[in-house]
Write a protein that binds this DNA or RNA. Structure first.
Lengths: 341, 341
DNA sequence: TTGAAAGCGTTACCAT
DNA sequence: ATGGTAACGCTTTCAA
């Protein structure tokens, strides 16, 4: 049973399609009487305008695209929440794609969004795309968007899009400083993916803080975790067993924290007695476990909302200067940073 | 700069639009030579067919809709992951809406999906809609879908859609039995939302197990948690302070567990020495904390995939009998169920 | 205040 | 094997 069309409504209400259209969009002149008549018919026939037809005719859709690297990572779920809320509030519709950190899936998602002619795109790239030919391919794809694009969480150098991201340098710095203040004299780090700017940046922040504190980061105290739980687990465990460890670590994100904590447990290291840490990103329900867990709050939901706001701002004034919103994290002390004698 | 259209391609390649269309869809006859020529032009012009135009013309979209109650609840994130994976694999596109457990937002989401003329809908309702007028409104909306609908996680009685859900009765039963086996002689429950079938069902499972074990559930041992963290926290704390408590509890979902654990901590009750439990749903990263956490694994990602598979099955054979897939949870013993002397 | 008709970018039918 | 053309459901312009 076909859905009612504007033609059906027009016929039943004995008016022209144009009039029905005006009623739908509350645009142009329609006498109150006609309006009511039309509305009644629409209700009777359960009329819902076809988004596809509207998009085609208006040459603009009501869809906002969101591409993110991992749907089921709590960090991105919170971002999704922020984006989804605002999309809803403004009466848009959300098209979601997950790249699972894979550039080819990232590109596929981009192509799908182009096909949808999305009204705006919030994009968390799977990679930094600093190397050819990927970067060129990305540019070609991004050029196809005739709508605003906001980069979220991961900036893309050499592209000038509005961007909302954390202050990663400062974050790394704050985390390391917290450990220093707690009295640690040797500090290590579970580094994020060195292929990602945000990974290097956090590491740089740590480096800088340690240098300033006169205890430069040693190469052997950098555990390459790549923002991956398993890799972090393996490397951290290896490092623990090797001995001669720092007393405190900076962890680069929530997945690093998972891996690190598993490794610590396996190595029978107590937190913070045997090994202390400060991590980027909270863990769902961390408060409960009695586990001390000091972290940098990156306001994920708020960042999602900010990205959408930036998108809407640009939608309204396309010529405004490019925006880069850099959100400084908040340090939340929960005891895991402590130095035990 | 407009996106290229099929007309542009046709002109540049000096062929008819129909031919270009055949190339796009690999349908009908096109000589290899022409095909190549057309493909070359499409690549040169970065051609991406307009999804809206295709939808309109084919009278069918490539979009799958997903409506869920809470985007940022880990349980639903995992479901989202399963759905999103399959949508991707089959070359569809995902439209996501979150109702935040609010029927009016639920309805709004449904209307949006109708407008999109989605090809299929995976629907986790915000409510059971057992009462009028809501149920009637829901029916009117659902009737507008000319595509398959699969109910996920929460069944809707009086509607005969394909359904994928947990075996909640059995889950409640298993959880309570686990406590009984562990030696508990008095068992309570943090009940889910009594307005939801799944909430009542889990409670019934617990009741049944306890009755069979000759220690019927007492009214005062039912803590009304409503699947809400805050409510559970408050009620559980109240109950703990009141004293004369069961030694073990069944918790109805992950949010109940959060609230319960916070309350236990606040009341200085140790797990499982002072109070034991078995909960529905895992917690992200629970393994890490050294917190014993016995739970029922409900295979969320798999359920998401199963829902999509059911959807595709129905898409392929619309006349097959209605399917109800009831997934029994797995009990994962992690020590929180233990009875300490 | 209203309606006829053109156009949006495809697909599919029908000729050729 | 190919192309012209009429849909598809809506918006928008223009005339009335």
């Amino acid at each position: 049973m076909r859905n009612a069309t504007i033609g059906d409504i027009a016929r039943e209400a004995a008016v022209g399609k144009a009039t029905v259209s005006r009623v739908i969009n509350s645009s142009g002149y329609v006498s109150e009487e006609t309006r009511r008549k039309v509305v009644r018919v629409m209700e009777r026939l359960n009329y819902h305008p076809s988004a596809a037809a509207q998009t085609l005719s208006r040459q603009a859709s009501d869809t906002i695209g969101l591409i993110l690297p991992e749907v089921s990572n709590q960090f991105f779920s919170e971002i999704l929440k922020g984006v989804s809320e605002m999309v809803d509030e403004r009466g848009y519709t959300l098209m979601l794609s997950s790249s699972e950190n894979d550039p080819s899936r990232d590109f596929r998602a981009l192509r799908a969004m182009i096909g949808q002619r999305v009204r705006g795109l919030v994009y968390i790239p799977a990679s930094d795309y600093t190397e050819e030919p990927l970067r060129g391919q990305l540019r070609r794809l991004l050029d196809q968007f005739s709508c605003p694009i906001v980069l979220l969480d991961r900036p893309l150098e050499a592209f000038s899009f509005d961007t909302v991201m954390s202050d990663n340098l400062k974050g790394g710095y704050m985390a390391a400083r917290a450990l220093v203040r707690a009295g640690h004299r040797r500090i290590g780090v579970v580094a994020g993916d060195p292929d990602l700017f945000i990974g290097r940046e956090r590491l740089n922040g740590v480096r800088q803080a340690l240098r300033e504190s006169g205890m430069p980061l040693r190469e052997e105290d950098i555990i390459p975790g790549k923002f991956d739980e398993r890799i972090t687990f393996e490397r951290a465990l290896e490092r623990f067993r090797q001995g001669d460890c720092p007393t405190g670590f900076v962890l680069s994100n929530n997945l690093s924290a998972f891996g690190f904590l598993r490794a610590a447990e396996k190595a029978k290291l107590r937190i913070p007695e045997d090994v202390a840490f400060v991590s980027f990103d909270k863990l769902a329900g961390q408060e409960l476990y009695g586990l001390p867990y000091t972290y940098l709050d990156r306001h994920e939901t708020s960042q999602g909302r900010q990205a959408m706001q930036a998108l809407f701002r640009r939608l309204e004034s396309p010529d405004r200067p490019v925006e880069r919103i850099v959100d400084p994290p908040d340090l939340v002390l929960k005891g895991s940073e402590r130095r035990m004698p």
